[in-house]
């Protein structure tokens, strides 16, 4: 079963929920936690383990071979992303603009643009106690997170059986990286905070998961600060408000130090247990 933990607004507690929930559920089930916030992956700061495997992640980009090139300019014409430019008697490739569609390569009459791998990031697979943990990080200056997110999900699919609880820590926002991280999920948990920013971005996130047609629930973090508009919105929209994590300076300080919360803070443990039960209900009540 795949569970994506997402939020419109950044900094509302995706990583907190992901790491605590995954570690807790791993006490009694097979769980893999995957950090798909490849631009700024943070889960690994909270679940350190033994490195089992690492691999470079590449995207395929065209490489110009001038020997047979007739300089017909078809490559430039077929590229919708302006990633290829014919300049005088040479062809320039701009890798950061390339989406890897292969059109230039396969439509080249002289086969002068073979695709070659270019590293965009690195995937690491750790074992932390009972928990498997996978993270990918995008290299700085690489702009496109989506291909790396896709390959990371492929790795998890290939290496863990379907009956594993696969928890995905998604990137923030509502644009293409979030869609990539949530579109295969069986259940989405949206975490937010009780402020106008939190509510506004929650509404965007709800619109996103509704468009994807995913079952979802909301977890409210920093409960007790701000106002009551998030619970009111959830009630009016018929969205399950699954659990609340209280606002507390102690929680903020424990998070700041890179520690998990649920073993020391009973309110967090209660919230995590409730979320785990919600997940199991959506899994037909089975144990895994």
């Amino acid at each position: 079963m795949k569970i994506a933990i997402a939020s419109g607004k950044g900094g509302t507690g995706k990583t907190t929920l992901s790491t605590n929930l995954a570690t807790f559920m791993a006490e009694s089930a097979n769980v893999v936690l995957t950090d798909l916030d490849v631009e700024e992956p943070n889960s690994g700061l909270f679940v350190q383990g033994e490195l089992l495997h690492s691999e470079p992640k590449n995207k395929m980009i065209p490489h110009w071979e001038k020997e047979n090139c007739s300089l017909c300019g078809n490559c430039q014409k077929v590229c919708n992303f302006n990633a290829i430019l014919k300049m005088g008697d040479s062809i320039m490739v701009f890798p950061e603009l390339c989406h890897g569609c292969y059109a230039c390569c396969e439509l080249c009459p002289t086969e002068s643009l073979p695709m070659q791998p270019k590293q965009m990031g690195e995937l690491k697979h750790f074992r932390a106690g009972d928990l498997d943990f996978v993270e990918s990080r995008l290299m700085i200056s690489e702009e496109q997170a989506v291909p790396l997110i896709k390959q990371t999900i492929d790795y998890v699919d290939a290496n863990f059986p379907a009956d594993t609880f696969k928890i995905f820590d998604a990137p923030p926002g509502t644009s293409c990286p979030v869609i990539e991280a949530t579109k295969d999920a069986d259940l989405v948990l949206l975490i937010t905070e009780p402020t106008p920013f939190g509510l506004h971005d929650l509404k965007l996130a709800v619109e996103t998961v509704r468009q994807l047609g995913k079952p979802f629930g909301v977890v409210l973090n920093r409960h007790g600060i701000g106002d009551d508009k998030v619970p009111a919105y959830c009630a009016a929209e018929g969205i399950p408000l699954v659990a609340c994590i209280p606002n507390s300076r102690k929680i903020a300080e424990t998070y700041a130090a890179g520690q998990l919360l649920y073993r020391d803070i009973p309110e967090v443990k209660a919230a995590v247990e409730t979320v785990a039960a919600f997940i199991r209900d959506h899994n037909g009540g089975e144990s895994s």
């Binding site: 950044g10 990583t15 700024e40 943070n42 700061l45 995008l138 496109q144 923030p172 130090a257 890179g258």
Partner: peptide, 26 residues
């Protein structure tokens, strides 16, 4: 947030960048 395409686009042409952070491991 992040380091990907919207951030790269925000930074291009900037005269000065203000980084806002907090003393947490993240």
């Amino acid at each position: 947030p992040g380091v990907g395409c919207p951030v790269v686009s925000s930074l291009s042409g900037a005269s000065y960048t203000v980084l806002v952070t907090e003393p947490t491991v993240s």
